[in-house]
């Protein structure tokens, strides 16, 4: 019913790449900042959180997309939340089964995936309006983009704050770790630095595109 209207646009590479680059949930849309700042104090925590969120995002978006024509508009948010909460509970058990240590490190942030705006946002803005295949591709891109962003933060913070990467020492002996990088302020510093880099890259890209356009216009 609703779905048919959107079938016209085909799946392109952009459907997937959008979440990683042009609409990256962390670096561009600035969504889900709570886990981004809180659990990125080490690479392993960051990746685990990213993967857990990706799993929930992928599963809930798929289910929302499958059921999109059955869900009355009036109860859609309630339905989405129940669906998301289901998958979060599942992830919670799965992580406990994989490693209790990891579960302890991620703490309450696993349960808080329920209220991560990336997931609800995807369900509302994309999954409820697009077919399953497109939703899966787009959500996978978003999930990978989120994991990538967490990895960017976690990598820098663990490297500078603890002198290690994935637990392996990287620096020479006698390197004094910058403990502040592991503390909450470090999260803000590193996030700020990455945002700066990303917006600089984007601006440069835009400027280049403009120059190229100008050259083309001149040539004709």
């Amino acid at each position: 019913m609703v779905g048919e209207l959107r079938q016209s646009t085909p799946i392109t590479l952009n459907t997937f790449m959008r979440g990683i680059w042009s609409e990256n949930p962390v670096f561009v849309m600035l969504l889900g900042m709570c886990p981004v700042l809180a659990v990125t104090n080490s690479v392993i925590n960051a990746v685990a959180m990213g993967l857990a969120t990706t799993f929930v995002l992928l599963c809930s978006s798929t289910l929302v997309s499958i059921l999109r024509s059955f869900i009355p508009k009036q109860v859609r948010i309630a339905t989405y939340i129940v669906i998301i909460a289901t998958f979060v509970t599942m992830v919670d058990y799965i992580i406990q089964a994989i490693s209790l240590e990891l579960y302890k490190a991620l703490g309450a942030f696993i349960q808080l995936i329920v209220v991560n705006c990336i997931i609800l946002g995807r369900a509302e803005a994309y999954a409820s309006r697009n077919n399953i295949l497109k939703t899966v591709v787009n959500s996978a891109g978003m999930g990978i983009g989120f994991t990538f962003a967490l990895l960017c933060l976690g990598g820098v913070r663990e490297l500078l704050g603890n002198g290690t990467f994935l637990g392996f020492p990287v620096f020479w002996e006698g390197f004094q770790p910058w403990a502040i990088m592991i503390l909450p302020p470090g999260g803000f510093f590193v996030l700020g630095a990455w945002l700066l880099l990303f917006s600089w890259l984007k601006q440069r890209q835009a400027r280049k595109a403009q120059i190229k356009k100008g050259e083309l216009a001149h040539a004709t």
């Binding site: 339905t79 129940v82 669906i83 909460a85």
Partner: peptide, 10 residues
């Protein structure tokens, strides 16, 4: 029906 169905699947 929708909410009940979803709750059951969940």
């Amino acid at each position: 029906r929708t909410l009940g169905g979803i709750a059951m699947i969940s």
